[in-house]
Simulated assay, not measured.
Amino acid sequence: MAVKLSERAAQEVERFRKEHDFGDDMVLRIEVAGGGCSGFEYKLNFDDKFDETADSKYESFGVAVVVDKKSALYLDGTTVDWYESLEKQGFTFENPNAVKTCGCGSSFQA
């Protein structure tokens, strides 16, 4: 399995890339780091580095997504979506590996 972006999430990534003048060589890096109220938290960044031995690379709706192999253990099968309402907006994570998530939506337990 892979890490996927929904079509709406891919549109937001592309909007952000253009707004900040990031070139096509910049990929979206998704990572898992220790922290947050449930033990792990998601990190999204743009990166111009890709190491074939340390990273996996996927593509969703024309957006290159890179995940390091350690994070891939926790993210396999995850879909990143974009949520927007009057109260808040941002990326959401549908992670089948999470056994518990925090109300904030950016922290999980595996």
Rank of each mutant, 00 (worst) to 15 (best):
V27P: 00
K100T: 14
L44V: 05
R17F: 05
Y58C: 01
T53I: 05
W82Y: 10
S60R: 02
Q109E: 14
M1G: 14
L44R: 04
T53E: 11
K4N: 09
K18P: 04
T53M: 04
L73C: 07
V67W: 00
M1S: 15
E14P: 01
A10S: 05
F50W: 06
D21C: 13
R15D: 07
T92N: 07
L73I: 11
L28G: 02
G105E: 09
S106P: 02
M26D: 10
E7V: 07
S38N: 13
G77R: 04
A9I: 04
V63N: 00
K4I: 04
L5E: 01
I30H: 03
G34L: 14
A110T: 14
F16G: 12
F91T: 10
P96T: 06
R17T: 06
S56A: 08
G23T: 08
G90P: 06
Y83M: 12
K18Q: 14
P96Q: 07
Q11Y: 09
G90S: 10
T79Y: 05
F61T: 00
V99H: 10
Y83A: 13
A10E: 00
T53S: 09
A72W: 04
F16P: 09
A72F: 12
C102Q: 10
K4L: 12
K18T: 13
A10Q: 01
S38V: 08
G77V: 01
G62M: 01
F16S: 15
K43E: 04
F108M: 06
L5R: 01
K18S: 13
A33L: 04
D25H: 12
E12G: 03
V3R: 02
A110I: 13
F93P: 04
E84Q: 11
F46V: 11
V99Q: 12
A110V: 14
E14A: 04
K70S: 11
F22Q: 05
A98E: 05
Y83S: 14
Q89K: 15
A54E: 12
E84F: 04
A33T: 08
M26N: 13
F108S: 02
L75K: 00
N45L: 12
F40G: 00
V80T: 05
D81N: 05
D25L: 07
V66P: 00
S38E: 15
L28S: 02
K88G: 12
T78Y: 01
N97F: 08
A33Y: 05
Q11I: 11
G36F: 09
G90I: 06
